[in-house]
Each structure stands twice: as structure tokens, then as C-alpha cells.
């Protein structure tokens, strides 16, 4: 830590310099990509703790955006601001603006329930409900008013196929979701998110509790989903970020230090600490 802090002192300009430009550059590199989520000057506080500092980022549509950084750097906090999951925690405060398709998600008139339908989330630990596989998937559609059994059957098959789980569970749809392995449970959770037909899927270290084989399947799945969904993934695993994402953002001590094309971040980062982190010198 002291080592990093001293580095920080040596390069004060890096704090403000690359971030905004880099994010603009990231979308500029891909003129075809529409910007889906735009965060502008986002500050976030847990009580007195200043967890996010002036975050500016543009997440392009239908791509995978990875957020990396050491523990406690704010990447998960930032992810959770995108579907207002932090609202559940007392004493949190956000300033700045985050827009989804141009509309401010923290606007007073914005229904958080509708936002979360549009921005689904996959969590670190698989968290299926204590229900059958079928009911797990139907939970979302049902709360949004779909009761028709035929329609639900279709949703279940489509989403389980989408999550590459159908063949493994098609004969035990009405068994407990807890009977599945960890990796299967996580794919079930992804299918469950797909069932509410979101535009954006947030993934908070979705593979950290899984073995390499299951991780591989989920990464493949992200690749398949990318064409239809905008995916933002927080990961501790830099190789994973390099494999699955098109853009990567590096968080450190609540700041977005650098945000650029994944290949640039991993081969030619402009920020010294980004380079130190991606080359494994700390973190």
C-alpha cells in the first residue's frame, strides 16, 4: 500500500488527465457502437466514506465492458450504482448523473423496479431461490405479470438454452434448483435474468465461486450474449477481463484511472498504475 501511495505522489497529473479523454476515445474507436450507459462526474459515499470519485465512463451497447482493480477499489460499488442496488444500503449518497439510453436513472420520477427489469444483475455467489428450476426462471416474468403457462414454458426453454443449461436440466425442471452444481446454479441465475428481458446485464465477479470448467462455460456464454445485451462485468481475474471484454476500466481507490479498449489497457496502458496492475506488480 505505501508503495502505491508513493507512486501516486510521483504522478499527480494522472489523476485527472486520461479518464475523460480515454472514455471518449473508447467509443470514438468504435463509431458503430451506440453509447448505452453514460456516467458523468459520479461521486458516491457510504456515510462519510467517499467510495467513488468523479467517475466518467461511457459504456457502449452490445459489448462487454470489464471493470478491474484491486479489492476495495470501488468497481463493485460502481456496478451496483447502475441498477441502483446501492439504494438498499443505508446512508449512501450519489452525486453526478448516470443515464441509460439518455434517461437519468437517478431521476425522481424513475421507477427503480422498472430500471432493475431493464438492467439485470448476476451476483458473485450463485443465489437461486429455494424453488424449482422452473419457478426460479418464471419468478421474474411472473412478477411482471406473465401468467400464461404456455408462454412461461417458452420463456423457460428459451432462457435455459440461452444460458447453455437446457440440455443439462430439461428433465428436472421441477426439481429444486439447489440440486444443481455451483456452475449450473450460476447459469440458472443468468437464465433467470434473461427471462425478464433486460437490455443490460451486470455481472459482479460471476465466476469467482466457480471452478475453471464452469468459468469457461460462463465466459463462452458472455460471448454468445454479447450481440443482444450490453454486459458490464466486474472481475478480479485479469485474464478473464482480457478474454471476454472489448473495453476495460481500471479502478483504484475509488477512481477510474483508465478506461479504454481492452487490448490497449493490457498492452499499452497510459497510466503507470494501470500498467503496474495489469502486469501483476500489485493487486
Amino acid at each position: 500500500m505505501t508503495n502505491i501511495a508513493s507512486q501516486d505522489k510521483q504522478t499527480p497529473p494522472a489523476l485527472s488527465r486520461p479518464v475523460v479523454n480515454a472514455s471518449a476515445a473508447a467509443t470514438a474507436n468504435r463509431p458503430d457502437a451506440k453509447s448505452k450507459i453514460v456516467a458523468k462526474d459520479v461521486d458516491f459515499y457510504y456515510g462519510d466514506f467517499h467510495a467513488l470519485k468523479k467517475i466518467n465512463i461511457v459504456v457502449p451497447e452490445h459489448q462487454v465492458t470489464a471493470l478491474i482493480g484491486p479489492s476495495g477499489c470501488g468497481k463493485s460499488t460502481f456496478l451496483r450504482t447502475l441498477n441502483r442496488m446501492n439504494d438498499l444500503i443505508d446512508g449512501t449518497r450519489l452525486t453526478g448523473s448516470i443515464t441509460l439510453d439518455g434517461a437519468d436513472i437517478y431521476d425522481r420520477s424513475r421507477e427503480v423496479v422498472g430500471l432493475r427489469k431493464q438492467v439485470g444483475m448476476v451476483f458473485q455467489k450463485p443465489n437461486p431461490f429455494p424453488m424449482t428450476i422452473f419457478d426460479n426462471i418464471c419468478y421474474g416474468p411472473r412478477i411482471h405479470g406473465i401468467r400464461n403457462r404456455k408462454l412461461l414454458d417458452e420463456v423457460v426453454e428459451r432462457t435455459l438454452r440461452g444460458a447453455a443449461l437446457w440440455d443439462e436440466v430439461k428433465d428436472k425442471l421441477h426439481k429444486s434448483a439447489f440440486a444443481l452444481s455451483g456452475g449450473q446454479q450460476q447459469r440458472l441465475c443468468i437464465a433467470r435474468v434473461l427471462a425478464v428481458e433486460p437490455d443490460v446485464i451486470l455481472m459482479d465477479e460471476p465466476c469467482s465461486a466457480l471452478d475453471p470448467n464452469s468459468t469457461f462455460r460462463i465466459e463462452q456464454l458472455m460471448e454468445d450474449l454479447r450481440g443482444h445485451y450490453t454486459i458490464v462485468i466486474v472481475t478480479h481475474n485479469m485474464q478473464q477481463a482480457a478474454r471476454v471484454s472489448q473495453q476495460t476500466g481500471f479502478f483504484l481507490r475509488g477512481e477510474l484511472r483508465e478506461f479504454d479498449d481492452t487490448s490497449t489497457i493490457f498492452t499499452n496502458p497510459s497510466d503507470e498504475e494501470t500498467e503496474a496492475y495489469v502486469s501483476g506488480r500489485f493487486g
Partner: peptide, 8 residues
């Protein structure tokens, strides 16, 4: 979280 995250 899972349930709230689905818009419940």
C-alpha cells in the same frame, strides 16, 4: 438481492 435485482 436476487429478487430485487429482477425488479421485484
Amino acid at each position: 438481492e436476487a429478487s430485487l435485482g429482477l425488479g421485484a
